[in-house]
């Protein structure tokens, strides 16, 4: 049982990180170079999960996607999509919740790259997309790695959002952080400790690896 829950947690973190990367690269790229008037609004929205209680996001998500409400009902009837108390719903909420952890490092990384690199590629006839993929992203690998690892670790650690949207369905939405809460409530401290210890060690290892790599201790890897 403990391994099923940990596997589900890992699965959620991996899927969330993958989709976050797809969403965040164009978003961060736009934020890094845009002078649009709506940019401060978008930046505020992206950063809000940093300060907002996770239960707030979870609550609105629950209200919006509940089949008892118009939008949730429409999604369910027309597309058969049920986001509340389901794994896809957890993924979507996790993407929103961890968005700043992926967008911020990529945005800072892109803003720090000399603008002449981008301009040189444009003058060579390269499109914006080709310039991003072949010139800009390869030069911000540490920022990409930081974004991926932080989002991954943050998703593993989330509690409020998943509890609100996913509930506590074993094998479907019961992730490790909720299992710990569950076991403590049942006064089953030994099981809670197993989950907690695995999360503690895993988180330490992940972050330690990021600092090692970005601190250039593995020079050959990044050369």
């Amino acid at each position: 049982m403990i391994w099923d829950t940990l596997l589900l947690t890992l699965q959620l973190a991996l899927v969330t990180t993958f989709f976050l990367l797809l969403v965040s690269i164009p978003l961060a790229s736009w934020l890094a170079q845009s002078k649009s008037k709506v940019k401060p609004i978008v930046e505020t929205l992206v950063s809000m999960p940093l300060v907002l209680p996770p239960t707030v996001i979870g609550f609105y998500f629950l209200v919006a996607f509940s089949p008892g409400n118009a939008f949730g009902n429409w999604l369910n009837e027309w597309f058969g999509i049920k986001l509340v108390f389901s794994f896809p719903g957890l993924v979507l909420a996790s993407i929103l919740y961890s968005l700043p952890f992926m967008v911020h490092p990529i945005q800072s990384g892109l803003a720090a790259v000399s603008p002449s690199l981008k301009e040189a590629a444009y003058l060579m006839g390269k499109s914006k997309r080709e310039t991003l993929v072949k010139v800009l992203l390869p030069n911000i690998r540490p920022a990409l790695l930081t974004g991926m690892v932080l989002s991954f670790a943050h998703t593993i650690g989330e509690f409020g959002v998943v509890l609100m949207i996913g509930g506590n369905i074993p094998g479907v939405t019961k992730v490790a952080s909720i299992a710990i809460y569950d076991e403590v409530e049942a006064l089953n401290y030994q099981a809670a400790n197993q989950y907690a210890a695995v999360l503690f060690v895993a988180t330490f290892c992940i972050l330690f690896l990021v600092y090692l790599i970005n601190g250039r201790y593995f020079k050959t890897f990044w050369k």
């Binding site: 000399s114 002449s116 690199l117 301009e119 040189a120 444009y122 003058l123 060579m124 006839g125 390269k126 499109s127």
Partner: peptide, 14 residues
């Protein structure tokens, strides 16, 4: 700029 076929040597070489 993509259609101007200009070679540009930047001050920081880029």
């Amino acid at each position: 700029p993509q259609e101007r076929n200009i070679g540009f040597v930047f001050q920081d070489y880029a």
